[in-house]
């Protein structure tokens, strides 16, 4: 028996096409499959796994984490290094970007700065182990200049991690800041000058309000990088002490104690803390003007 379709009703294919679902839209499927299989599924699996601890009730891992200072302090250890590095990078990047935007040939500088980002934290750590060491060039130069009398300790403590994050993090922040600063219509600065604003007031009244949304995004992306600090915290820091960051705790739980449930729980806490900070910054960003940064309509 044939099923009769009312004539007034368009075919499924047409109805889907009306909602812009057709052959082209289906090109999305392989990528979606990858993300679902390799990101969403493992993430959900990890979440469930973290709720089935080796001992105790479903929340035992989380309770253990937030009652053990050795574990929950890793959050503060991580924030303690990632937030200052991110803020310092931004503070340094802004004036430098303002200077560099006046240069005609920025390519050389941007190329030099992209090198430490590309090499990554592991290589920078290996370099710093020698460079910042008691016999390294950094300490030698300071002694030679007469600034210090004996080598200062920069490795296997907070400052080693700080230096390595700054070296990979600052160029990242700078390059993004530069693209935001270059995006502000130069005519606005000229207009403000003809209206009597000097360099400081042009920055304060014109550039800063227009840059805040971009700088907030910039802060978030840089923070995401710095918050995930792992190899340099192990190699250059004190992985059992002041730079015991949350990534180390997660790794140890999963791969040294073979407690995948606890490892997943810490990993998820790490993601949540990071998203909380990002969310907070983005919420503040919403209080500012976020439209175009040019002085004329499209």
């Amino acid at each position: 028996m044939a099923i009769s379709i009312p004539a007034s009703r368009p075919k499924l294919r047409q109805r889907l096409a009306l909602r812009q679902i057709d052959g082209v839209t289906l090109l999305l499927l392989p990528a979606l499959l990858v993300v679902v299989l390799l990101f969403v599924y493992p993430f959900a699996y990890g979440l469930l796994l973290s709720l089935r601890p080796k001992v105790g009730g479903f929340a035992a891992n989380y309770i253990a984490f937030f009652t053990d200072p050795y574990l929950y302090n890793t959050i503060f250890a991580t924030l303690n290094v990632s937030v200052p590095v991110t803020v310092l990078s931004l503070i340094l990047a802004l004036p430098i970007a303002f200077r560099v935007r006046l240069l005609k040939h920025q390519r050389l500088l941007t190329t030099i700065l992209v090198i430490p980002i590309t090499l990554g934290t592991v290589l920078v750590a290996e370099g710093l182990l020698n460079y910042l060491g008691p016999q390294g060039w950094f300490n030698r130069t300071l002694i030679w200049l007469g600034l210090i009398h004996s080598p200062i300790r920069l490795l296997h403590n907070y400052w080693g991690v700080f230096a390595s994050l700054l070296i990979t993090g600052f160029p990242f922040t700078f390059l993004m800041t530069l693209s935001y600063v270059s995006g502000v219509d130069p005519a606005l600065e000229r207009a403000a000058a003809t209206l009597g604003a000097n360099a400081g007031r042009r920055f304060w009244h014109i550039f800063l309000p227009l840059l805040v949304p971009g700088l907030a995004i910039n802060f978030c992306l840089s923070f995401v990088q710095n918050f995930s600090v792992f190899p340099s915290a192990v190699l250059l820091g004190a992985p059992a002490g002041e730079t015991r960051v949350i990534a180390i705790a997660a790794y140890q739980a999963a791969f040294e104690h073979y407690d995948y449930s606890m490892g997943s729980a810490i990993a998820i806490i790490m993601g949540v803390v990071q998203l909380l900070v990002v969310g907070l910054v983005l919420a503040v960003r919403n209080l500012f003007y976020r439209g175009s940064t040019t002085g004329a309509k499209g």
Binding site: S228, A267, M270, G271, L275
Partner: peptide, 17 residues
């Protein structure tokens, strides 16, 4: 999201799977 979540956060459950 995969670009924003820390690599450790996705790495541990993914490695487990």
């Amino acid at each position: 999201l995969p670009l924003l979540v820390p690599p450790m956060t996705i790495g541990i459950p993914l490695a487990t799977v």
